[in-house]
Design a protein around this nucleic acid. Structure first.
Lengths: 247, 247
DNA sequence: CAAACTTAACGTAAAAAATACGCTAAGTAT
DNA sequence: ATACTTAGCGTATTTTTTACGTTAAGTTTG
């Protein structure tokens, strides 16, 4: 599957979308990367990049991002958030990468403004129908990527950390039914520091949008923990309320 | 002065920048609007819009925003923050506005992705060298603007309110030397609600980046208040510190 | 010049939220 | 049965937020 195949003649030469897709396997954080489209005489064949593409002129940017994600992972209606715009006129570097872009897109690209989204999915959840060209890479082991994609990932991680503290985005990285400890481990990995388990419990349990289920963990060799789920509707209500409080 | 005059032949037909410039005159909030460039046979001559322009291909978006602001207000190095990207393929409505854009830009515009910035300046401060085409309009009295500019302003106000609570952006709207009460009034106007003066004082005074001066208010017919200034360096330090706290 | 008026500025008690940390409970493995 | 591991509850302490009483320092008015 080639990113640029669809409606190739309608691609916009100035605007593109990239997606930083995070996955969490209950131990570590990964990012979804793709090998760039093979090309006759590519000096760096198989160089990796973020999933992304120029937009078509019939799509708004959110749609483009969803399309790219769907084509790559088969997943739809996933958490997706715009978080950066890259617009430096000389960011299409190095020249070999620009050359690759021009040849694969069939356009005379001079300058590209890229809007970046990040996305969160659970790796252990439904097995992803990843294409052969894509793979998960641990955030600590990311090779040199095309253009400024390494920098983009760095910024995405910082963004993720920051938002983590105020918005409950982490739930997208966990199974539908999760334990308090799983949630804690996720936050510890993202923040890079230990959290007191007893206080973490209290903080989480007083959130009315985290609903205990009539189910416990299975298949563990110790006391099975209570399972919870995240209730998005209740969360939205909750958010509306706190918005209005301030003396 | 016409927005599109400079380097007209290098304008990008797909990407533009708009600026929502807020001003505060110690009572109410205003937005800077411009009459759109006069055009032979314009069915709505003098229709108003946000200051904005397609980008040139030598600029990144921040530079474009600064250029637009400089051309319009003579101000430079002002607070400016990117806060939205509008990308709906059919947002260049109504047709008469699109027609105007095509004629004034001299380009065949089909689809435009617009990156929006907001900016804060003090109206009472240095007198602005506004061009004849631009003027301040109270946020409650904004007429119908071109394209989706009314919606953009609405979103900018919401953004301003939200950020107000976590970031000390309000200082850009006040004189360099300000009183606690001025700061409070600003927040009350933006939030649309009264704040207890005694608790507000305490909240503000424990912020180490708000520095008392050896000066008091002048020319008021009551007890003159202590003047303070906002120290950006100290604020950045402060911000770095709280970033790392969490258990 | 005293009384009234206005805004500035300090303080204190009570309530709520965050933190530190002891301890028990419920499972599995040996 | 005992050791081991993770789950889960509780309580005392500190810190932050909120509510609200009070005094101080000016100006204006009669």
């Amino acid at each position: 599957m080639q990113e640029f195949l669809i409606m190739q003649n309608k691609l916009n030469p100035h605007i593109s979308v990239d997606c930083v897709v995070f996955g969490f396997d209950s131990r570590q954080l990964s990012v979804l990367l793709v090998k760039r489209q093979p090309l006759e005489g590519d000096p760096e064949p198989g160089k990796m990049k973020l999933p992304g593409s120029p937009v078509t002129d019939a799509e708004d940017l959110d749609r483009s991002a969803y399309r790219i994600l769907r084509e790559l992972t088969g997943l739809d209606r996933i958490f997706l958030k715009q978080f950066a715009v890259l617009s430096s006129p000389d960011r299409l570097q190095p020249p070999s990468d620009l050359e690759w872009l021009r040849r694969t897109s069939g356009m005379h690209v001079e300058r590209m403004v890229t809007v970046v989204y990040y996305s969160l999915i659970k790796i252990n959840g439904s097995p992803l129908p990843l294409s052969e060209r894509s793979q998960w890479v641990n955030v600590d082991e990311i090779p040199q990527l095309t253009f400024d994609h390494n920098e983009i990932i760095q910024r995405a991680i910082e963004q993720l950390r920051r938002e983590m503290l105020t918005e409950p985005i982490g739930f997208e990285l966990l199974p539908k039914k999760f334990t308090i400890t799983q949630l804690q481990t996720l936050q510890e990995v993202l923040l890079g520091q230990k959290i007191d388990n007893r206080n973490f419990r209290k903080r989480i349990l007083k959130l009315e949008y985290i609903i205990p289920l009539n189910e416990r963990e299975k298949g563990v060799s110790h006391k099975p923990a209570q399972l919870y789920r995240f209730d998005k509707k209740l969360y939205n209500q909750y958010k509306r309320n706190i918005g209005s409080v301030y003396l």
